[in-house]
Simulated scan of single mutants.
Amino acid sequence: CALGRRDPSCAIAPLSKSWHLGGGASAHFFLGQAFEAQGMVQEALTAYSQVFEDAPVIYPALYAYARLASDHGLGERVFEKIDALAVHDANPAVYYTGAKICLGLKDYDRCQAYIDKAMAKKEVSGPFFLLQAALFEATGKDEGVEKTLAECITKLPQYVGGWLKLSAYYVKKQRISDAVQVMEQALNSFPDHPEIKGNLAWLLLEEETDFDRALDLAREAYDTLPGQAWLMDTLGWAYYHKKIYSQAQWMLEQAEELTPGNGMIQYHLGMVLYHRGKLFQAKTKLESALGYISLDTRQRDKAESLLAVLNGKEGLKDEGENMIFNPEATPSLDLESQIPSETGESEDILKPDWSNMDSSAH
């Protein structure tokens, strides 16, 4: 319970007592986690080491030991233990641990050697395919990435991670239509999976092809996983595309509370505020979004264009040909004549909110 509350200092004493009373390998494992969370590296390494010596099948302890030791310059000690375990236990999880640690250390040849050993023994699980794909990506072998992930969804169609990773690879290569096709196939196999629904919704928004379906998928995904910031962002962006701006703002603000340093959420929120006429708030969010690397060229160009307007450099109309006002212009303009008479949602009439502009903007 103490670990669950992220209070490792309170966890150490009862876990130590549990171990002394015969709590076994599991007590040692959680004790190692508590030590690690407290920054007690040597104590954590000792606890993890005891776990996989007493119960080698508890592979999370092996990985925890290997990761922590590698982070502190003890890589060779890690490989000695992994190789010694492999002599007595050829379980793929031992090789997986070695391969993953090697990938992190950029020891690519040794990483491939561990993967080859695992695949030579028996049929391997989905994470091995993802690890092989990650190795190909790290070494610049794009053809190998796509081939490996395609093999994964063919041989292990029930492994959701393979579908998600292949779609993400296509997105990275700006092959959005291919990513959509992969997610559509995945949805046929996993019709209730929230991550697949959420990813497909985002892709449809990127393609700008079916906003209605994107909104439905995003809502369904959010209903299943309501506490996920990325799903809140997707749903908020879907509301934006449907011009339901008030709901979009509320949802994106919830997402921002969970991940305040996310540039994409800041960009989306800035766009929504802009279309709601909350100009100064929009300016602040868009400027903040440009400070992050998560925005692509198209999004950066859009943000910079709108900021030019908000900084009074040029005039611009919104998608409905309604004038967006220059915040440096005099408020004595005939504002009402430029407010659209009809919108998709009465509460979302585009009207500049001058109260949001600070005095320095005039």
Rank of each mutant, 00 (worst) to 15 (best):
I101N: 03
E36A: 15
L149I: 01
K351F: 08
F190G: 07
L307I: 08
E143K: 13
H28A: 14
V145T: 07
A93Y: 07
H72A: 01
Y59F: 15
Y65W: 14
K106V: 08
I176Y: 10
E207P: 03
L204Y: 12
W163N: 04
L156T: 04
N199Q: 15
K173D: 10
V78D: 01
Q38E: 15
A329T: 06
W163P: 02
S355Y: 06
Q281L: 14
S359E: 14
E151F: 05
V272N: 08
E184A: 11
L225E: 13
F29A: 05
L200I: 02
E151I: 07
G75K: 05
K147S: 14
A99K: 03
N188Q: 13
F52V: 03
Y239D: 07
Y65H: 11
A138M: 04
G22F: 08
L215F: 10
L200D: 02
G39S: 05
I153T: 08
P92Q: 08
Y239I: 03
I293Q: 14
D178M: 06
D210M: 02
Y267Q: 01
T284K: 15
A214E: 01
N199I: 04
A64E: 02
C10A: 15
F136K: 04
P14G: 03
L235A: 10
G162D: 00
G73L: 04
K197Q: 14
